[in-house]
Amino acid sequence: MNAQIHARLKVARGDFTLDVDLDLPGQGVTALFGASGSGKTTCLRCLAGLERAADARIEVAGTVWQDSARGIFVPPHQRPIGYVFQEASLFSHLTVRDNLAFGYKRIDPALRRIHFEQACELLGIGHLLQRKATTLSGGERQRVGIARALLTSPSLLLMDEPLAALDAPRKREILPYLERLRDELRIPLIYVSHAQEEVARLADHLVLLEQGTVLASGPLNQTLARLDLPLARDEDAAVVLEGRTGAYDEVYQLLDVHLPDSALKLRIPHAPLAHGSALRIRIQARDISLSLAEDPRSSIINRLPVTLRALSDQGSPAQMLVSLDADGHPLLARVTRYSCDQLGLQPGQKLWAQIKGVALLGQ
């Protein structure tokens, strides 16, 4: 698929320079991920036109929003975007209904792609419409802010760490609504975050930024599995895989999760889910051990045949990180250097991955 969002940006600010060239998919969720000061918010502000890069070209769905070489700059209010900030910044003297209507009524009815009732249903805020903004919790305020952005019928939705100001329970409250937006709307979303859990649950495409430059950009599952990136060196290094639910074992309460385009499946202790439901699973590198042969007598029920793709010592005297292929699906395993030598691990080798833990994201 050809990228539908292109952004070449160069911004110099004191001792910091943002210099990126991005080709992003025109659908799904793209996460801009990196430490504070890596340039995530600056990228977002330039896309929105809130910051004017001196050297830039921005094209979205075939429309040029900025081309410094040709003197083109579309001002923010003329760009079909929805922008969600860390703080919802609602009008405190208005009700939720009036806050939502503020932008909605300014959109030509013929151009409305998201309607009032639809936005309220997607964000679960119908029961809040008569409430004043000052009476809302932090999570409720942010859901109203997201609905308000949707009601501008944007061609591109931008979110700048929308959960950063919330505590853990409020984050858990909002994440399912963001997943609904991803799954039910066809609006591309660019999501800024430094929280791995949010990225794992929401993103389809990952852009990894460091000190104003792009270290990597690609599909989430492939990018997380790259041994040359800092994410793989993290103690919580993991991969995220897509799957669909299969049979359910009532006796042992085990749910089958089938990996796409593969005969492989995982069995996970979980309550039953509708057959064929799409879901995401996260498998940490530290939860995979390796064996030269399958051991059916093991207490580990998830054992997959894999091919070793690459090894990296990551500068550690004691541990190795191993990149694996499970019938087209990437996995990472962290093992001791001793085990690596004892098993004679090398690229191309056929092994068995013993998966001690699998997390269903959002379930």
Rank of each mutant, 00 (worst) to 15 (best):
residue 143 R to I: 03
residue 307 T to D: 12
residue 43 C to T: 11
residue 264 L to C: 07
residue 61 A to V: 11
residue 261 D to P: 04
residue 16 F to A: 11
residue 86 Q to D: 05
residue 121 E to N: 12
residue 245 T to S: 12
residue 92 S to W: 11
residue 296 P to H: 07
residue 136 L to T: 02
residue 190 I to K: 05
residue 296 P to D: 06
residue 153 S to G: 11
residue 15 D to N: 12
residue 124 G to D: 08
residue 91 F to E: 06
residue 120 C to T: 03
residue 78 Q to E: 14
residue 91 F to L: 08
residue 261 D to C: 10
residue 245 T to R: 06
residue 114 I to W: 05
residue 170 R to D: 03
residue 61 A to G: 12
residue 297 R to C: 01
residue 145 G to V: 06
residue 214 V to W: 05
residue 163 L to H: 01
residue 106 R to G: 10
residue 221 N to S: 15
residue 178 L to C: 01
residue 220 L to Q: 12
residue 69 A to C: 04
residue 90 L to R: 01
residue 61 A to L: 14
residue 123 L to D: 02
residue 253 Q to T: 13
residue 169 P to A: 10
residue 106 R to N: 12
residue 316 S to R: 06
residue 318 A to M: 08
residue 339 S to C: 07
residue 308 L to I: 10
residue 31 A to I: 04
residue 72 I to R: 13
residue 149 A to I: 01
residue 83 Y to A: 01
residue 249 D to S: 14
residue 309 R to V: 15
residue 226 R to Y: 14
residue 67 D to C: 08
residue 228 D to K: 14
residue 271 A to P: 00
residue 60 V to K: 06
residue 249 D to R: 14
residue 213 T to I: 13
residue 337 R to I: 03
residue 32 L to W: 02
residue 238 A to P: 09
residue 189 L to E: 00
residue 143 R to M: 02
residue 90 L to F: 02
residue 259 L to M: 09
residue 352 W to T: 11
residue 214 V to S: 09
residue 40 K to S: 02
residue 63 T to A: 15
residue 183 D to V: 01
residue 190 I to C: 07
residue 173 E to W: 02
residue 132 K to N: 13
residue 80 P to I: 14
residue 209 L to N: 07
residue 327 D to M: 05
residue 351 L to N: 05
residue 288 I to N: 02
residue 7 A to L: 09
residue 322 V to Q: 07
residue 328 G to V: 00
residue 78 Q to V: 05
residue 11 V to L: 15
residue 305 P to V: 08
residue 93 H to L: 11
residue 227 L to W: 11
residue 286 R to S: 10
residue 203 A to P: 07
residue 183 D to I: 01
residue 46 C to R: 01
residue 25 P to L: 01
residue 318 A to K: 06
residue 108 D to T: 08
residue 173 E to Y: 03
residue 279 L to Q: 09
residue 307 T to A: 13
residue 337 R to D: 01
residue 289 S to V: 11
residue 134 T to M: 10
residue 227 L to K: 13
residue 225 A to F: 09
residue 213 T to N: 11
residue 190 I to H: 04
residue 199 V to G: 01
residue 104 Y to N: 00
residue 194 H to Q: 12
residue 321 L to R: 15
residue 142 Q to G: 04
residue 176 P to Y: 03
residue 283 I to H: 04
residue 176 P to H: 04
residue 287 D to W: 05
residue 262 S to Y: 07
residue 19 D to I: 08
residue 246 G to V: 02
residue 86 Q to Y: 03
residue 360 L to T: 07
residue 252 Y to F: 15
residue 34 G to S: 04
residue 144 V to L: 00
residue 256 D to F: 11
residue 281 I to G: 07
residue 92 S to M: 11
residue 291 S to E: 12
residue 348 G to V: 09
residue 46 C to Q: 04
residue 9 L to N: 09
residue 177 Y to G: 00
residue 166 L to N: 00
residue 26 G to S: 08
residue 65 W to A: 09
residue 193 S to L: 00
residue 341 D to M: 13
residue 47 L to Q: 06
residue 221 N to T: 15
